[in-house]
Design a protein around this nucleic acid. Structure first.
Length: 719
DNA sequence: TCACAAACCCTTTTT
DNA sequence: GGGTTTGTGA
């Protein structure tokens, strides 16, 4: 080890040890929040290349987000002082995609295969269910979609699943089978399929697998705690025993278990990649001692951790403020007033973040911030390429590029509206199915046989597409997009769209032209348009570089992961909201909520404020709630309870109209009691909770399954 | 076929 | 409460 090396400068002991580990080691770096994990990962790669002469092509680096992959690329080419266009750095999905494009024939796909995003996937499943007379009220499309995706995440095909006597699973597997056949017929790949298909590709092609096994001498993975089963197997498959693995992760920051991420994968490393060197990065460069100590205490309530304790040498800093609000408006008023004070004491708006458990909580903050005329930006919601107007435009591009793109055809054949309704579309679908052709060709061929009105509409649609093809033939990508926007009538449609008062949809369309202009086509394996279309699906957000960052930041805790702010307001610290009511029964869900709280707290550099409301409006109902258990898990010595003297609980309740908290019907509420519901029929009460207007019961209905109902709305007959 | 009203849902969401 | 989807009547 030579600490004089430039790459190793400025690293602490543990970081240094990690970066300069022997080339022939498998390693797990347990990197706590704010301990410099990205730094370690990029410097490790640079170290391998520059100091150990590992060729660029021999390195595979995997991240979860495009943002992380992009940052790693940028940092690497900066350290190495050269561009790294063909290096295998990317997301699991991005790399799987690359693999499939390179070897599409062996993966049983055409060169033009399309990627489905979750909206496209939803529509297809819904249509398949309708065509096969599956009752949507019994089998919600969302749940079927979730089922299919989680099976794929587990690496399971329909034939691998044993439904037993479970009707729901049985039906789900049937739909999975139909869906799989549909996708295969139409050359479609969803997100989960990218991973599963590329896994199978390697599994079934030994030569190919061996090639990559010996090619990638070093495999590096970021955020390892977020890997799911198929991702883990994907990595394991590429491991030959003579190549080397370098994983960075933090079991305490695993917050995507609900999407199939498995923390246990970190523990499994030890057996599957033996011998494994584990290094803990525990020195934190972000937060104050108080914030770290409070976070450490909170997370220590979780069992089954690998164990880690963050420390800092930068002093204790301020206490953590805890504010008890009357309701969500009062909560927002408090946070707003604090931000105002911070800003007048020289903070920037962008140094302040409001973090919440669920998106719905942003509303009250938005209202109050607008009232006080403070600048803010809300993250989350639909991302750029998921917006309806952008998808419309992309589908014109897709259909123009490939006439057999049925997903694109379905979306735009009658948008902007041109008189092609469901009945006409159904005829086109049937014709296409019988003649094994695409919808576009079917529409063209069937057109003379339709009613005059429908016939004319189809004719003008086909003519429109042909004129688009003609007009854009010799244009570059962004000119193509611009031309499509006008010729399709989309631009005109959104210009006159009265529901879009701010004109943001039109702005977004113009932004799309800019995105096309900025698109850098690097991959020589595919053409430019295919590359752009894939990017739009795989990378659904777009860099908004012209955003003057002088805004208060509002987002969910999930989306705050990986970020940091000077001042963090962690709001809505209430039982049933955070932790959510659904997590309370199962300890592994509760642990994940606690980790989420830990992630939220450790986002703060200097000042952390926690707030909770006594009463809150949720789904049109006033709900009373106790302070979150997480507040009581933080030692009191770190907490500064702002208003325990100002608003006592008594004064709150004496002000509000004396609402009976105990409903009259409580006596009938007993687990096991039989009830009848107007729609769901007969059922048995299996659980109940809450009080007053918000009291809810869980009923297991004989035909409709188990449901949570709000008692005051459900109109149950007790029998 | 379309436009509007009623009905429905409702944690988190890297790809 | 609010955003989206479904159903109905012109």
């Amino acid at each position: 080890m030579n600490p004089d090396l430039k790459i190793l400068q400025g690293l602490n002991n543990k970081q240094l040890e990690s970066v300069s580990l022997d080339v022939n080691t498998n390693a797990l770096i347990l990197a706590g929040a704010g301990s410099g994990k990205t730094r370690v990962l990029t410097h490790r790669i640079a170290y391998l290349i520059q100091e150990k002469n590992i060729p660029l092509e021999s390195i595979l680096a995997v991240t979860f987000t495009n943002k992380a992959a992009g940052e790693m690329r940028d940092r690497l080419s900066l350290i190495l002082r050269r561009p790294i266009p063909n290096m295998w750095v990317g997301t699991f999905h991005g790399l799987a995609h690359r693999l499939l494009r390179l070897h599409h024939d062996k993966a049983n796909l055409s060169a033009q295969f399309q990627i489905l995003d979750s909206q496209d996937q939803f529509r297809i499943i819904k249509r398949l269910m309708k065509e096969n007379q599956v009752d949507e009220s019994k089998y919600p499309v969302k749940q079927i979609q979730w089922f299919i995706n989680s099976q794929k995440d587990e690496g399971l095909r329909p034939q691998d699943i044993d439904p037993g006597y479970n009707f729901f699973i049985k039906k789900s597997v049937e739909i999975y089978t139909l869906y799989e056949a549909h996708c295969q017929r139409n050359d479609l790949i969803d997100f989960a399929e990218l991973l599963l298909r590329s896994y199978e590709l390697l599994k079934n092609n030994e030569d190919l697998l061996n090639h990559f096994k010996s090619r990638f001498s070093h495999i590096l993975i970021d955020e390892f705690q977020d890997t799911n089963k198929i991702q883990y197997n994907w990595i394991k498959q590429l491991y030959s025993g003579s190549n080397h693995l370098f994983c960075v992760g933090d079991d305490d920051q695993s917050i995507y278990g609900w999407r199939g991420a498995r923390v246990e994968n970190i523990q499994k490393l030890e057996t599957d990649f033996n011998p494994l060197k584990t290094i803990r990065l525990e020195q934190n460069y972000r937060s104050t001692g108080t914030i770290l100590s409070a976070s450490n205490q909170l997370i220590s309530n979780n069992t089954d951790r690998l164990g880690k304790s963050l420390w800092t040498d930068s002093g204790d800093g301020e206490m953590i403020d805890v504010y008890e609000a009357r309701d969500e408006i009062n909560e927002a008023e408090y946070v707003t007033s604090k931000i105002k004070a911070l800003v007048s004491a020289d903070a920037n708006y962008s140094d302040c973040a409001i973090l919440y458990r669920s998106n719905a909580q942003s509303r009250a903050f938005e209202e109050v911030l607008i009232k006080h005329n403070l600048p803010y930006v809300i993250y989350g919601g639909l991302r750029f390429f998921e917006r309806a107007e952008i998808k419309d435009a992309m589908c014109y591009l897709r259909l123009s590029h490939a006439k057999n793109d049925d997903v694109a055809f379905e979306r735009i054949v009658n948008f902007p509206p041109r008189g092609i309704g469901n009945s006409t579309l159904q005829k086109i679908r049937e014709y296409a199915q019988q003649n094994l052709t695409s919808l576009y060709i079917a529409a063209k061929e069937i057109q003379p046989d339709l009613s005059t009105r429908a016939s004319n509409s189809i004719k003008s649609f086909v003519e429109q597409m042909e004129s688009i093809d003609d007009a854009i033939k010799h244009l570059n990508l962004s000119e193509k997009v611009a031309k499509i926007l006008t010729l399709s009538g989309l631009m005109n449609y959104y210009e006159n769209d009265k529901s879009d008062k701010a004109g943001s949809k039109k702005d977004n369309l113009e932004e799309l032209i800019a995105a096309a202009k900025n698109y850098l086509h690097e991959d020589e394996e595919i053409d430019e348009i295919t590359g752009f279309i894939s990017l739009a699906t795989l990378e659904s957000s777009v860099e908004s570089n012209h955003n003057p960052q002088q805004n208060i930041q509002l987002m969910t805790i999930h989306s705050a992961k990986g970020l940091e702010f000077e001042n963090v307001f962690l709001v809505g610290m209430e039982e049933d909201l955070f932790p959510t009511n659904r997590s309370k029964e199962e300890s592994h869900l509760l642990s994940e909520e606690r980790r989420l709280c830990y992630v939220g707290m450790t986002r703060a550099r200097k000042k952390l404020t926690l707030t909770h409301a006594i009463k809150r409006f949720i789904h049109g109902q006033s709900i009373y709630a106790y302070p979150s258990r997480f507040l009581s898990e933080i030692p009191d010595q770190h907490l500064n309870w702002i208003n325990e003297n100002q608003h006592s609980l008594q004064s709150q309740f004496s002000n509000s109209p004396a609402k009976s908290i105990v409903p009259e019907s409580t006596s009938q509420l007993a687990i096991g009691a039989s009830v009848r519901h107007a729609k769901f029929g007969m059922g048995t009460i299996t659980n109940f909770e809450g009080s007053g207007d918000s009291q809810r019961v869980q009923v297991n209905f004989q035909s409709a399954g188990s449901k949570w109902l709000i008692l005051s709305y459900a109109n149950l007959d007790f029998i």
